[in-house]
Simulated assay, not measured.
Amino acid sequence: MSREKIMAIEYIRGVSMLGVIGIHTGAYSLSNPKVNIHLFALLEIITRFSVPIFFFVSAFGLFITQDLTAKLNYSSFLIRRLRTVLLPYIVWSILYMLHYTFVSGDTMIWHPPLLYEFAFFGLASYQLYFLVILLWFYTFMPLWRTLVRSIIKHPIRNLGILLLLQMLFNYYSSYILHANFSNHYLNKLIFHRTSYWIFHYVFIFLFGAVCAVEYVKFKEAIKCYRSYIKTFFSISLAGMLLFYYYLVYTLNYTPEAAVNTDHQLSPIGILYTLSSTVFLFMLFSKDRLPEGIQKLLGSLGEHSYVVYLVHPLVMYYLASYLSVRNLLMTAPTTIMFYLTTVIISLTFAIFIKKIGKFIPVISLLLTGSKLSKPKSGV
Rank of each mutant, 00 (worst) to 15 (best):
T101N: 01
L371I: 05
S182D: 12
S195H: 15
A59C: 01
Y308I: 11
I53C: 05
L247M: 10
L328P: 07
S2I: 05
Q127R: 08
I222C: 13
L168I: 15
V85C: 07
R48Y: 09
S285V: 05
V210R: 01
M97T: 11
I90T: 04
Y185P: 10
E117T: 09
A221L: 13
F351C: 11
N260Y: 11
I156F: 11
A221H: 14
S75K: 13
S369H: 14
A257F: 00
I176S: 13
A209G: 06
F169V: 11
Y321P: 09
T341L: 03
V278T: 09
V85R: 04
V202D: 02
G14S: 03
A319Y: 15
S31G: 09
G208E: 05
V35E: 00
T139K: 07
I343Q: 04
L265W: 07
I79F: 12
F121L: 05
Y244V: 00
L162N: 08
F60V: 06
V20N: 06
T47Y: 02
N187K: 03
P33W: 01
T47W: 04
I6G: 04
A319H: 14
L98S: 06
I344M: 00
Y249E: 11
W92Y: 06
K5C: 03
E256H: 12
H154M: 04
V306G: 12
K71M: 05
A119M: 10
V51F: 03
L135S: 08
L339S: 06
I344F: 08
K188A: 06
R145M: 11
H154K: 07
T47E: 03
F40H: 15
E256F: 14
F358W: 12
V35T: 02
F77C: 13
F102C: 07
L322S: 06
L346C: 02
D262Y: 02
H311S: 08
F284A: 02
F233P: 00
T194Q: 12
M7S: 14
L18Q: 14
L147E: 10
T333Q: 12
R288P: 11
Q127S: 05
I156H: 09
K230C: 11
I235N: 06
L98C: 11
V91A: 12
I176Y: 15
I198C: 13
S369T: 13
P33G: 03
L87V: 13
I335M: 05
M108E: 14
R145C: 09
L135E: 06
P374N: 08
V361R: 10
M141Y: 13
A8L: 11
L237A: 07
D262G: 10
S275A: 13
L162D: 06
L328W: 08
